[in-house]
Amino acid sequence: MRTILKRYRGFLIVLTGFVILYLVNHTLGEKAAQISVYSIKEMLLVLPPIFILLGLLDVWVPREIMIKYMGKGSGLKGIVLAFLIGSAAAGPLYGAFPVAAVLMKKGVKFSNVLIFIGAWSTTKIPMLLFEASALGMKFALTRLIVDIPGIILIAWILSKLISEKEVKQIYQNAESMAK
């Protein structure tokens, strides 16, 4: 009970603020509540398959295979796979982090994990279709063409900014998160 309270402390603080907002300004509070409830619903709708797949990946795909295809020395193959897995995803960026933890646990190279995160954030195929219909094909394609090298560049810079030791720490942390 105590640990639950501690873990949900941030949520409870924001919830209190929410109630205060409602008391001060009914219209704004109501509008905010509507959007929050909608967002939570969306979250609960989108996340289950992602987590089921993550659990299956963790249990069924051996570490050796992941290392072979996406680990150190996987080269272009690893980069392309990182892009494909990230782009096939649906759902907001926060869904990508637990998947990234499993990838790290399976020995995927750090720069490939970062490419996966980048791809999940911007080159999701299902989202591109929505983007093209709302903003035009030219807009969507231009963004895609600029974003692909951008994702690789950002992943490369990030992996240069961080030391071996720090990467190791992140991997250890991921291991304990995805137990």
Partner: peptide
């Protein structure tokens, strides 16, 4: 389930902030 429950508190907090 464990992976989900792991980030649930933060996600719920974020959804409230998003609303506001």
């Amino acid at each position: 389930w464990k992976s989900f429950e792991n980030i649930l508190p933060q996600l719920l907090m974020i959804m409230l902030l998003v609303g506001v």
